[in-house]
């Protein structure tokens, strides 16, 4: 097999496996789902019920690095955020109109539990407020910090019927880490919780056929 095709296969193989795995459907009600996001071509994990949809799509570290360098970040700072397990997130109130239950999301209540560390204990996310303090110390430009502030998902947000928002979420874990994610929100003030299991941060390393055994 030509080396280029081998590498292509190495990259696409895990994605294909994920796509073909008979997991719960992406549209399953009251159930987590995972698969390949058709727009991004990358793995996603999602929760959906009648009122709320929470979808997390993996971002490649180089994709995030390139995005923030293009917004004016230094390569050092862009690398720091790129290597902190960034996902694209879309969160939506699935109701319509004023009568729909109100969804309140508060990312300070979400927790990650690393799976491959036997001592891994639940921990909070790396939120935009903490990052912004770092960018101030690093003397990143105003334009870069504004873009960062608006491209990360808000820490707290209220969603009324039909509202949605999108933005990046940084989980503060090294590339390739697998973890369980505890999602928490309120529906008309009532606490709700769901767990996305086996979420995986994108890796910077790609397994290739050149070094693999036959």
């Amino acid at each position: 097999m030509p080396p280029q095709l081998g590498r292509l296969r190495a990259v696409l193989h895990p994605l294909l496996l994920l796509a073909l795995t008979p997991l719960t459907s992406a549209c399953a009600e009251d159930d987590p789902a995972q698969g390949i996001d058709p727009q991004a071509g990358l793995p996603f994990w999602a929760w959906q019920d009648a009122s709320v949809e929470i979808r997390l799509i993996q971002r490649l570290p180089d994709q995030t690095r390139g995005f923030f360098i293009a917004r004016g970040f230094s390569s050092e700072s862009a690398d720091r955020i790129a290597r902190s397990c960034v996902f694209q997130s879309i969160q939506r109130n699935r109701g319509v109109g004023a009568a729909a239950p109100v969804v309140d999301l508060d990312l300070t209540q979400w927790q990650v539990t690393p799976l491959d560390d036997p001592k891994g204990s639940p921990r909070p996310l790396a939120l935009k407020e903490a990052w912004d303090e770092e960018w101030e110390k690093a003397q990143e430009s105003q334009a870069a910090r504004i873009a960062f502030r608006w491209s990360l998902f808000p820490t707290r947000q209220t969603f009324r019927g039909g509202d949605y928002n999108w933005g990046m979420i940084s989980f503060g874990l090294p590339p390739g880490t697998r973890f369980d994610l505890t999602l928490r929100w309120t529906l008309d003030g009532e606490p709700q919780e769901a767990i996305l299991r086996g979420v995986s941060c994108a890796s910077e390393l790609v397994e290739t056929d050149e070094t693999a055994p036959d």
């Binding site: 590498r7 990259v11 979808r55 971002r59 994709q63 995005f67 694209q88 491209s151 999108w166 910077e204």
Partner: peptide, 29 residues
């Protein structure tokens, strides 16, 4: 034993990758 290394991106992947790189956050909703 399998080894991991930084990928040498073949050109078809490079095209896809550049498209991803230039894109912002994906899946608008």
């Amino acid at each position: 034993m399998r080894h991991l290394k930084r990928p040498t991106t073949p050109w078809p992947l490079a095209v896809t990758f550049m498209a991803l790189l230039l894109s912002g956050p994906t899946h608008a909703g």
